[in-house]
Amino acid sequence: MPMIRDLANPTRFMSLSGALLPWVGGLAALLLAAGLYLVWFVAPADYQQGETVKIMYIHVPAAWLSLFFYMIMATSALGTLVWRHSLADVSQKAAAPIGAAFTFICLVTGSLWGKPMWGTYWQWDARLTSMLVMLLIYLGILALWRAIEEPNRAARAVSILTLVGAVNVPIVKFSVDWWNTLHQPASVFRIDGPTIHSSMLVPLLVMAVSFTLVGLALHLAGMRTEILRRRVRTLTILEAERLDAQAA
């Protein structure tokens, strides 16, 4: 707990994240290069799908990160509502556009994968629809952040919306088990182990880790910028107050 309290200090966070960010970003770039090499030059074509399976290596990590960033937002929302910590607000706000972007990537690449494999870009099946709902929730959260000017009030309103929207996370995850869907069931995170051959699983995991590191680097960078934005806002208000006092 003392370590978390130390990190939760914005000044301490700026110092630590400033040192950490180049390493996370560098590692993300290295792993992404390794992942792309494995996907394009090592991983075999699928016996049924042929080379179209290459879309899986970006579609699946994007789907995981969509849920991952929503969980970061939901955890931060608890931090805002329960502990009222400003860094939790900052974390929520920085995570939203990243999560929305990965959800968008997941939907678009899924659609582009669906057309040659299923014969259609879109189907109102449970997994696809719940993922679209996830994107709409992300967009609603982004809109709410912009709609309320005072950061603390915005954070509380967004926290409630985020926690209500968290109901959709298990629906997305288990939709393929609960309903009879066109989308295939889970093939990596299963109780009986992955059903993908290691020649495809390894590149997929490398891409997933690299996407996660890209996302975390963007999240750290976004949090740092948001802290600066709040400092700018505070100082702008102080300057206006000072000018008012001088004029009076």
């Binding site: 080379e51 179209t52 290459k54 879309i55 970006i58 579609h59 990537i105 678009v108 690449t109 582009l112 994968w113 057309k115 040659p116």
Partner: peptide, 8 residues
């Protein structure tokens, strides 16, 4: 489809 997915 593959190229467009990666490009986007």
């Amino acid at each position: 489809f593959i190229t467009l997915s990666y490009a986007l």
